[in-house]
Nucleic acid binder design. Structure first.
Lengths: 332, 332
DNA sequence: CTGAAAGCGCTTACAG
DNA sequence: CTGAAAGCGCTTACAG
């Protein structure tokens, strides 16, 4: 059906080897035959079969991108940037949406291996993710961004979350808050763990209220955060401020407070984390800690392709970027 | 490097043909040898090479998904659903983000053809999209969702946007509005054209203010909508309500009104279109016309794979779903 | 500068 | 029920 190099070779009266050479822009071919072949290829509207090529070259120029939830604006934004950047570098990306299910992640990893992708970018890494570390023995290059593995020699680009939460607490304390609640994420992600650690450290440092009821698991999910905020509000001695470990949860907390008749920030302060785009909207104006999604995505894509994927001397990349508190109008 | 069927054949003491048969679960093979081969495949941790397989079968079980902007929550949500649904049906999806650039779309179409995808799903179709209709002569199946081509025998799933805008105007008129502005999208998309047409029809029907200044091109972009809203507000005789042709622009309009000191809906009403998830947030509460993103995405994925991609008798699918006005708190 | 040949990892008639 | 062989569309030493 599709036209092949054999078709071109016939029309041009040369061998397929020669056609292949000009198509791959090798230098050892006469300009005259080169032009002829090129013209014919264009005329026949030839489209090389990348899969056939991969069979010989062992390179698919395809990357897997595994993320936990494309519906989360943070991952939508970073996925979008990663796709665009690696495209400019000559790679296609197969996107895989795990919906936060480890089983689905394993399934996707297998599929990506069967498709012989040149490497995998993970936004979905758990702290003890054996499926990912196993990749090392199987020789498939990978990098994790945002969420990362426990430690060691794997590639990652993430944010100094302890520092980020510290900034949030600093600010709330400077506003006079003493009873601060914390909405955490699942303890299986580095981001949740680090952010919680940052909170615990800061709480100790400032000698804030130690009430265990103030720390709640919002699971990084808007609805769950909503419920837990409800619980927080209903406490006999409720907090005056809530720090949510991501913006999605902060949005849930905000929604809950408003629907419960509270004014934000007059009655209660709310701080998020990530700085997704909607947080800056005039009707939201969420105070949050920015992890610079665009920068993190761009760096992940570029460094993975340019440093890790280079066959000869694959360098390791390990980066921990500085977060930045962005003060808007949900805090006082 | 990777283990192949040849490796398995050697260990099992059978031919590669037999190995291939059991791996593909053909029936004509003795249970005994079948079990042996399976055991060995598992033991060696065999992962079939999908690309090599495609070379023979002419099926890649890969789909291209071309969308205009993954950062737009509508496309993030629908892409996420499409990816998950086709995955369950045995397909991987290569995602392509055109950033609304026709040139990039053409580039992506070529790449997808070179990768021999089994079909392409377009969320980015322009009304006169020759690159897409050309696909018919090249025998690559496709479907467009949301935005669709001019008409004819191509596959699409979209919404009755004339009806949707009609509902919005009906409601505003019932609230007493007579001077209604309209923020349109680029006239190259069916969605923009239909929504504008719906507005013009309704305006005529109700004999509303015909001032041409009231219709402005927000380009489906939040920032552009922000500027045009500013222009609208500054009119000597400003509108009392704004209909935005998508939620993104409505969000921009809302942001602009608030920052300009107006109260919504007390001073001005705003209606969006699409019903992206953030529109329902307590701080947003955007009145909008829902196109049922989840339903449209699910149907697109299912019908494309089950109807269009079946080799024998590919059926055409053409669907125009009914929209629904969702009244929240940006209108009065 | 060019061609014949081998081979990448599979599948599938054909023959037995 | 199984194997030998051809072939999918390419690339790349090897030889000239």
């Amino acid at each position: 059906m599709d036209v092949t190099i054999k078709d071109i070779a016939e029309v041009a009266g040369v061998s397929v080897a020669t056609v292949s050479r000009v198509l791959n822009n090798k230098d050892n071919v006469r300009k005259e035959t080169k032009d002829k072949v090129m013209d014919i290829a264009k005329e026949l509207n030839y489209q090389a079969d990348f899969n056939a090529r991969s069979l010989k070259t062992n390179k698919t120029h395809t990357l897997g991108l595994i993320i936990p939830d494309l519906t989360n604006p943070f991952y939508a934004q970073t996925s979008s940037i990663i796709e665009n950047v690696v495209h400019d570098l000559g790679y296609s990306t197969i996107i895989c949406n795990t919906n936060n299910q480890p089983k689905l992640q394993d399934e996707y990893i297998n599929i990506l291996r069967q498709r012989r992708v040149d490497g995998i970018i993970f936004g979905s890494a758990r702290i003890d993710d054996k499926s990912i570390t196993d990749l090392k023995t199987k020789n498939v290059p990978y990098i994790t961004y945002h969420r990362c593995l426990k430690k060691g020699d794997t590639n990652y680009i993430t944010t100094d979350d302890v520092k980020g939460i510290k900034q949030a607490v600093d600010y709330l304390v400077s506003c006079g808050h003493k009873k601060i609640a914390f909405l955490s994420g699942p303890r299986i992600y580095s981001t949740s763990i680090e952010r919680l650690r940052g909170f615990l450290q800061a709480r100790k440092e400032y000698n804030l209220d130690f009430d265990p009821d103030l720390i709640r698991d919002g699971e990084f999910v808007e609805e769950k955060a909503w419920e837990e905020t409800q619980n927080l509000i209903n406490l006999t001695d409720p907090p005056t401020a809530i720090i949510a470990a991501n913006d999605i949860m902060a949005l849930g907390a905000l929604d809950c407070c408003i629907k419960s008749g509270l004014s934000v920030p007059q009655d209660i302060s709310i701080i998020g984390y990530d700085d997704i785009y909607i947080s800056s909207h005039a009707r939201i104006q969420l105070t949050t800690v920015s992890v610079h999604p665009e920068k993190i995505a761009r760096k992940t894509a570029e460094l993975f392709v340019k440093k890790v994927l280079t066959k000869e001397n694959s360098e390791s990349v390990q980066l921990r970027l500085d977060p930045k508190l962005i003060i808007r109008n949900t805090t006082a």
